[in-house]
Lab assay of single mutants.
Amino acid sequence: SHFELRVGTITLHFDNISEELAEELEKLAKNGVHADEIRRWWEEWLK
C-alpha cells in the first residue's frame, strides 16, 4: 500500500509499506527525526 508521511515541509512517499512500518515511521517523525534520516532508515530496511 502507498503511504505519505509529512515531515516538516517535506512529504515522503512510500510504496509497498506495511501498516506497522508506516506507524513506526510516523513515530519517528513525531519524535522530531528529520526526513533525510527517515528516508535513509527506509532505504536500509529495503535492502
Rank of each mutant, 00 (worst) to 15 (best):
Phe3Gln: 01
Ala29Lys: 07
Glu37Val: 11
Leu25Ser: 00
Ile10Lys: 03
Leu25Glu: 00
Ala35Val: 14
Ile38Ala: 03
His2Gly: 13
Ala35Arg: 02
Arg39His: 09
Leu12Phe: 06
Ala35Ile: 10
Asn16Gln: 06
His2Tyr: 07
Glu26Asp: 11
His34Pro: 14
Leu28Arg: 05
Leu21Pro: 01
Glu44Thr: 07
Glu43Phe: 09
Leu28Gly: 02
Glu43Thr: 08
Trp42His: 10
Glu24Ala: 11
Asn16Ser: 07
Leu5Asp: 02
Phe14Pro: 00
Thr9Tyr: 04
Lys27Gly: 11
Ala35Cys: 04
Asp36Phe: 04
Glu24His: 12
Glu37Asn: 09
Gly32Gln: 05
Gly8Asp: 07
Glu24Val: 10
Leu12Lys: 00
Leu46Tyr: 09
Lys30Leu: 13
Arg39Val: 15
Arg6Lys: 15
Lys27Ala: 13
Ala29Asp: 02
Glu4Tyr: 02
Trp41Tyr: 14
Ala29Ser: 06
Asp36Leu: 09
Trp42Leu: 08
Glu43Ala: 08
His13Cys: 08
Glu44Asn: 14
Trp41Ala: 12
Ser18Tyr: 03
Glu4Ile: 03
Leu21Ala: 10
Arg39Asn: 09
Asn31Trp: 06
Thr9Gly: 14
Ala29Gln: 04
Leu12Gln: 00
Glu26Ile: 15
Thr9Gln: 12
Glu37Asp: 13
Glu24Asn: 08
Glu24Asp: 09
Glu4Asn: 01
Glu43Ile: 08
Ala29Val: 11
Leu5Arg: 00
Ser1Phe: 12
Asn16Phe: 08
Arg6Trp: 04
Glu43His: 12
Leu5Tyr: 01
Phe14Cys: 04
Asp15Met: 08
Ile17Lys: 00
Val33Ala: 14
Gly32Cys: 06
Leu12Glu: 01
Val7Gly: 00
Lys27Phe: 09
Ile17Gln: 00
Phe14Lys: 00
Ala22Val: 12
Glu4Phe: 02
Phe3Glu: 03
Trp42Tyr: 15
Lys30Met: 13
Arg6Tyr: 04
Phe3Val: 06
Glu19Gly: 11
Glu20Pro: 07
Lys27Gln: 13
Trp45Cys: 06
Glu26Cys: 07
Asn16Thr: 05
Gly8Val: 03
Trp45Ser: 09
Arg40Glu: 11
Glu4Trp: 03
Glu43Asn: 10
Trp45Thr: 09
Asp15Val: 08
His2Thr: 02
Lys47Thr: 11
Leu46Phe: 10
Leu21Ser: 05
Trp42Arg: 02
Trp42Thr: 05
Trp42Pro: 01
Trp42Val: 10
Glu37Cys: 07
Val33Met: 15
Glu44Pro: 00
Lys27Pro: 00
Phe3Leu: 15
Lys27Asp: 10
Glu20Ala: 12
Ile38Val: 07
Leu25His: 00
Lys30Phe: 08
His34Glu: 14
Asn31Ala: 13
Ser18Arg: 04
Ala35Thr: 04
Asn16Asp: 09
Ser1Lys: 14
Glu20Gly: 11
Ser18Phe: 04
Thr11Leu: 07
Glu37Tyr: 08
Glu4Val: 03
Ile17Tyr: 02
Arg6Met: 15
Leu28Lys: 07
His34Tyr: 06
His2Val: 02
Ala35His: 06
Phe14Met: 03
Phe14Ala: 01
Glu4His: 05
Glu26Val: 14
Glu4Cys: 02
Ile38Tyr: 02
